[in-house]
Write a protein that binds this DNA or RNA. Structure first.
Length: 527
DNA sequence: CTAGCCTTGATG
DNA sequence: CATCAAGGCTAG
């Protein structure tokens, strides 16, 4: 998902910079304090934490996160000696204090999976000193402390309380990648465009493009199921911060163009912004309504009212990215891939915000990637120009630039997605239909752990009927639009699965910000 | 090969 | 000068 040849611009106060960016995904908590305490707020020594790989006693930060001394040494030896281990079993060997020696392959995979960074092992073997990521560790400590304070507020977004809820994953530590990176020429810079109404304060914020997709990838299975018990608890704080970030850019809302498929709509005070209608609303009328009644129209309006306006989402994402960059040092900028992850992350926050209750959260956790794909498709159909990809931030990238410079997987994903965009443009997908597709994807009665299967089925049926009636009433000349739209869903699913697989591979390579909602979703779904 | 302890040296 | 995360050393 990195975007070679991509130089989007973000408004101030981001600092223009043309070099490689440190992919540091740190907290948004403002300037660091001078406290560098090794104790938790409750006075408990931090060293009592257990190693995320084997559970042994943590001895400090090593190669990106808190680990024990032995895993530190193991990781160092493995990277320095360029070890390639093979697991004799199914790459799911138990990893604990007593068994960590038994399978170096699984141990190393787990090191990578929890976020240890190969890049932090020095190629020149220089001893001593600090690498340039020292400040990142410090901010990680602060964030850990902040998390402890926030533990009381972990209610609304918790999906699952696991026994090992990814507790010791690196908190957004993300040292500079040693992967091949390249700085873009000014030509490439101009291959991306700001939306004309993006805001007058927009300064050139070029980003590097990391061409590191086609490295050797580890097996695509998902080892260490115990890691995939995740919660959203770590995100309540950032989420709560979101409204504050509005003020940063809210005067610069991009005014998105209104196409024939007019996607602008007015929100009524009845619905809380960005929140879907309640389940009772969705089920308030029997699915066997009289077809000629306006019930489906009203129903669709209700669904639409729950949708977040694009300009608001755009503002949120921009504000988040701005703040992220503002909190970084000069050599510490997000790289392109990390920025894309951040965009996806913020869109996911929107989805979780949108989802009403636990059932919905569960459903979202099973189809988040499809919803993201749908969201992207809708944006392309509405705002996207023929040869460009339109990002949630309003920025545009030439498809040809991506295709020419990306690796096989990414090119394939972009091509497939653009094909789908073309088909949906031909179908003239409108916002009502998009929302219906979104609900049809969400309300999937096949999700195993869903208790109220009947409720999910009924909602699905109702949305299905609304979509059918809408297409018949609004596009009478296009007799099979309903069927054509439904036929696109398997491709949406297929693309989303490929994206998940791609993201997981990047995650194993340490490229994904570990403390992101994106990462948690990735793990939760495969749990 | 492992893992505990030691040395180093940039950083604030 | 203290800190602490790098690499080094070595007995087991």
């Amino acid at each position: 998902m990195d975007v070679p040849g991509y130089h989007p611009q973000l408004p101030q106060p981001l600092v223009p910079h043309l070099g490689n960016y440190t992919a540091d995904l740190l907290n948004l908590e403002g300037s660091p304090t001078s406290q560098d305490s090794k104790t938790e707020p409750d006075g408990r020594p931090q060293s009592e934490e257990s190693c995320p790989i084997c559970g042994d006693k943590v001895s400090g930060y090593h190669y990106g996160l808190l680990t024990c001394e032995s895993c530190k040494g193991f990781f160092k030896r493995s990277v320095q000696n360029n070890k390639h281990y093979t697991c004799a079993e199914q790459q799911r060997c138990p990893m604990n204090l007593s068994q960590r020696k038994r399978c170096p392959s699984c141990r190393f995979q787990k090191c990578l999976a929890v976020g240890m960074k190969k890049e932090a092992v020095r190629a020149d073997r220089m001893r001593g000193g600090r690498n340039k990521f020292g400040p990142l560790y410090r901010r990680d400590r602060q964030r850990k402390q902040q998390k402890v304070y926030d533990q009381a507020n972990t209610g609304p977004y918790r999906i699952k309380q696991g026994t090992t809820p990814w507790p010791t994953a690196p908190n957004d530590l993300y040292p500079v990648s040693s992967h091949a990176s390249m700085s873009l020429s000014s030509d490439a810079l101009h291959q991306t465009h700001m939306h004309p109404n993006m805001g007058e304060t927009g300064a050139l914020i070029p980003l590097d493009c990391t061409m590191n997709e086609d490295r050797d990838l580890p097996p695509s299975s998902l080892p260490y199921p115990e890691l995939y018990h995740c919660t959203f608890s770590g995100f309540t704080q950032e989420k709560r911060e979101m409204p504050l970030s509005y003020s940063l850019v809210h005067t610069n809302y991009p005014v998105h163009p209104t196409s024939n498929n007019s996607f602008t709509y007015r929100r009524t005070p009845v619905s809380s912004p960005g929140s879907a209608p309640s389940s009772s609303t969705l089920l308030s009328q029997a699915p066997t309504q009289n077809r000629d009644s306006p019930s489906s129209t009203i129903f669709l309006s209700q669904l639409l009212e729950g949708e977040q306006e694009e300009s608001q989402l755009c503002a949120k994402v921009l504000a988040s990215l701005q703040r992220e960059q503002a909190n970084r040092g000069k050599h510490d900028r997000l790289n392109t891939f990390s920025i894309m992850c951040k965009m996806a992350d913020q869109t996911l926050f929107g989805l979780v915000e949108w989802a009403r209750n636990n059932l919905w959260h569960l459903l979202v956790s099973m189809c988040w990637s499809e919803l993201l794909v749908l969201d992207h498709l809708c944006r392309q159909v509405t705002y996207g120009k023929e040869s460009c990809i339109y990002l949630v931030t309003g920025q545009q990238i030439e498809v040809s630039t991506i295709i020419s410079q990306a690796g096989v997987t990414l090119s394939s994903l972009v091509s497939r997605t653009q094909d789908l965009v073309s088909k949906l443009k031909v179908l003239q997908l409108d916002r009502h239909e998009f929302v219906c597709l979104k609900y049809l994807v969400l309300f999937n009665p096949d999700v195993k752990s869903v208790q109220s299967r009947r409720q999910v089925e009924q909602t699905q049926e109702r949305v299905n009927r609304a979509l059918m009636e809408h297409t018949q009433q609004n596009h009478p000349g296009h007799s099979d639009k309903f069927g054509q739209l439904l036929l696109r869903l398997p491709e949406v699913r297929s693309i989303s699965l490929q994206i998940e697989e791609y993201l997981y591979q990047r995650h194993l390579l340490g490229d994904l910000p570990c403390n992101s909602l994106l990462t948690e979703m990735l793990h939760t779904k495969h749990n």
